[in-house]
């Protein structure tokens, strides 16, 4: 099957003003200013097949949004070739727009003071959606996203979770072939996050809509996207399945054992000691297969164990681990 999106050596550089600090710096900047070139996206290459769900992951400022903006035709790549649905997105922005849906997590596309329904109705005109198709889609989305209760309420009265569901519905009304979501779960509470994730996974599964989503929440990836593209500092770090990343890296969960009194040195076979603070000892669990029970069995009774804390690695941790293991993975990243 032909790729629905393909990026080949895509680059994007911005020119940014250097701010000068202090009163003297401020006065100086009245007369002269200096700029720095920022390479937000650097030599990115990947191909996405129709029907895939891909998580685009990276810390803040990694160039995720810039990449989304290029794929949606908002920005032109500085170098490289980019193709979406067989077209160059920037030069075919309007035609591209008809076939994609875009959700920006932190900027609303709904009309703030009007009922949700009105924004939907306007989109029917913007995208020329046939009447019957629109009614079907609206009914489906309203039910799936449980929006019935607030369809006639002004957007300003909605909770963030309700609003985000409406934003997603708005982006799907015209049956886009691809939906881009920029941080769709940011700021949502646990229940709302869960609803959004389940819905997106279902749209991908049942309607075959290709999903590209940026996030810095690993759970988004776990529940929606089998495939993960990881970037940092504009560069592609990893492209492949999440399970492979975990397996390759080891999950490196962090374990802290707290004792009533310092039990002395306590080396373990199941976990590696990373820091010893006497009564509190920090370990890393390298092997996915080892459970907390295994570790506790090894520690055994008699040390006066008081408390146990197990932390899953967050994205920063994964990326840190990733950097440490970069050489090892160099061959594995496609």
């Amino acid at each position: 099957m032909a790729a629905i999106i393909s990026a080949d050596g895509v680059d994007k550089t911005f020119r940014q003003l250097k701010r000068q600090s202090g009163l003297a710096g401020g006065l100086r900047s009245l007369f002269s200013r200096t700029y720095t070139e920022i390479r937000a996206v650097s030599d990115i290459t990947f191909a996405i097949e129709p029907g895939e769900a891909v998580g685009y992951l990276g810390p803040n400022g990694a160039g995720k949004s810039t990449m989304i903006k290029m794929m949606t035709g908002i920005l032109t790549p500085s170098a490289g070739a980019l193709s979406v649905l067989g077209r160059e997105p920037h030069t075919n922005r309007m035609r591209n727009a008809r076939e994609i849906g875009v959700v920006f997590g932190q900027r609303s596309q709904l009309w703030w003071d009007l009922p949700v329904r009105d924004s939907f109705a306007l989109n029917r005109h913007i995208y020329d959606i046939p009447e019957a198709r629109f009614a079907d889609n609206l009914a489906f989305l309203t039910e799936m996203l449980d929006m019935g209760a607030y369809l006639d309420r002004p957007v300003r009265q909605l909770s963030l979770g309700q609003r985000m569901r409406a934003e997603i519905a708005l982006a799907l009304l015209h049956d886009p072939k691809i939906i881009f979501l920029d941080e769709p779960t940011i700021g949502l509470d646990v229940v709302a996050k869960d609803a959004v994730r389940k819905f997106l996974a279902r749209v991908n599964r049942e309607r075959g809509t290709t999903i590209i989503l940026t996030t810095h929440d690993l759970v988004d990836i776990e529940e929606i996207c089998p495939r993960l593209i990881m970037v940092d500092d504009g560069k592609l770090l990893f492209d492949g399945e999440l399970t492979r990343l975990r397996a390759d890296l080891g999950s490196r969960r962090r374990l802290t054992l707290e004792f009533a009194t310092d039990p002395g040195p306590l080396p373990l076979a199941t976990a590696t000691l990373s820091r010893d603070e006497g009564a509190a000892k920090h370990y890393l669990l390298e092997d996915e297969a080892i459970s907390l029970i295994d570790v506790l069995n090894e520690v055994g009774r008699g040390h006066g164990l008081k408390d146990v804390k197990l932390e899953e690695p967050d994205i920063e941790e994964v990326i840190r681990t990733f950097y440490q293991n970069k050489s090892r993975l160099a061959g594995a990243a496609s």
């Binding site: 009163l23 401020g26 006065l27 900047s29 009245l30 200013r33």
Partner: peptide
């Protein structure tokens, strides 16, 4: 005063 300097 300083904040205004930023807007050359």
């Amino acid at each position: 005063f300083q904040s205004r300097l930023a807007y050359r």
